[in-house]
């Protein structure tokens, strides 16, 4: 039953990612959600899917989101 807690935390992170006012907080919640989902995939036995989830979502997509926000913020102040 330990995985129900994981599911609950993932849903919580997803809601936070959607609802947070600050974009950086929202992206951090998205990153945490991606890591939780990767753990869930690993527990399901889909090891490769879990690795790809970590590499692409938690790695690439989150970084891209942060870079985008960073670029836009810098323009706004400048």
């Amino acid at each position: 039953m330990w995985d129900l807690a994981l599911i609950f935390l993932t849903v919580l992170a997803a809601i936070l990612a959607v609802e947070a006012k600050d974009l950086i907080r929202s992206i951090m919640a998205f990153l945490i959600m991606c890591i939780f989902v990767a753990i869930i995939y690993y527990a399901m036995g889909a090891v490769y899917a879990s690795v790809f989830q970590l590499l692409i979502y938690a790695g690439a997509v989150s970084v891209l989101l942060i870079v985008t926000v960073h670029t836009i913020r810098r323009r706004r102040t400048a």
């Binding site: 990612a17 959607v18 974009l23 929202s26 992206i27 998205f30 959600m33 989902v37 979502y57």
Partner: peptide, 28 residues
């Protein structure tokens, strides 16, 4: 959650996050 984000949020970055959450949901 993903579809709600897509239809209700006005920020473009939130829209991208919504697309990604929906993709993860369909994969799961």
């Amino acid at each position: 959650i993903g579809v709600y984000c897509l239809v209700s949020k006005r920020n473009m970055i939130k829209t991208v996050i919504g697309i990604e959450v929906t993709t993860i949901a369909v994969n799961t």
